[in-house]
């Protein structure tokens, strides 16, 4: 079999997920040997013609141009991976979805009329079929490697989906909620980071998005009952993955959510 052609694309995002690929310092040269990097502007100016076997898409869709471009890319790519929480949930820039984009634009830009943006920032899956979602803000580079390895070996990648809590316990991290009263979104957040934040003594802020099958609304209520300031629970859930439907609905379900809700 000839080497699979890999393309890496960027949409509305911070480049951090692409950088995570380049941060595979020990594996990068092997990776480049195992696949044909056919399109990856952040790493190379060489562009091979499509179609491509694997497409890694960083970023969310937030402009009309992006909405068109993702359609073209879908036609070019056989196996499309949404890379990172922007691509899987709309990302931090999806906070605009909870307000009016025009109101935000006047705060930032002198001539908002020059902008060509959509009212919302949305995940790739809202526009085209996505074959695999890799969560994380940023992604875990080893999960990227595992996906590529699995595709090369024609098997399903090993991507567990349990809560961050399980990682805390495996690594012996003491629960910040129980031992400190710190709010933590770990019970509702997907594994992947290895419980980085609780291991540093702070609560998880949900950057790997909702863990499938978790109890989002129950978690939201629990967090709200332990808030240090009104709106803390909403802030935690309405953050990097705040536009993920599970977190959105959990915030909506909060009793008194509307009164406690901060501006966004």
């Amino acid at each position: 079999m000839s080497k699979p052609k890999v393309a890496v694309y960027k949409f509305s995002s911070c480049d951090g997920c692409q950088l995570s690929i380049l941060n595979l310092e020990d594996e990068l040269l092997d990776l480049a040997g195992a696949v044909e990097i056919a399109f990856f502007l952040e790493a190379t100016r060489r562009v091979l013609p499509g179609p491509y076997d694997i497409g890694l898409v960083e970023g969310s869709i937030s402009t009309p141009h992006e909405a068109e471009r993702i359609q073209e890319i879908r036609h070019q790519v056989r196996f499309l991976i949404a890379l990172g929480t922007c691509a899987t949930s709309g990302g931090i820039q999806a906070l605009r979805n909870f307000t009016q984009v025009d109101d935000l634009a006047v705060i930032v830009y002198e001539h908002p009329d020059y902008l060509h943006v959509l009212d919302t920032s949305t995940p790739i899956s809202q526009h085209v079929k996505v074959d695999l979602e890799l969560w994380g803000c940023p992604v875990n580079k080893y999960q990227v490697l595992e996906c590529v390895a699995a595709l090369l070996q024609n098997r399903t990648p090993y991507l567990p989906t349990h809560s961050v809590c399980l990682d805390c316990k495996r690594r012996g991290t003491v629960c910040v909620m129980v031992a400190n009263g710190t709010l933590c979104l770990g019970p509702a957040t997907r594994t992947g980071c290895g419980a980085l934040c609780p291991a540093s003594g702070r609560g998880c802020y949900g950057c790997f998005g909702p863990a499938p099958g978790a109890e989002y609304a129950t978690t939201a209520h629990l967090l709200q009952s332990k808030e240090h300031y009104p709106g803390e629970a909403v802030h935690l859930m309405r953050n990097f993955a705040g536009y993920a439907p599970q977190f959105r609905e959990a915030v909506d379900a909060l009793v008194g959510g509307s009164e406690n809700e901060p501006a966004l």
Binding site: S62, T99, L104, I107, V108, V117, S121, Y229, H235, A263
Partner: peptide, 19 residues
């Protein structure tokens, strides 16, 4: 693309800002 950080930072808790 514009992402409007200065806009949606308004109303957030100060501890969240660096994140």
């Amino acid at each position: 693309p514009p992402r409007f950080f200065e806009g949606f930072l308004q109303g957030r808790y100060y501890q969240e800002v660096p994140d």
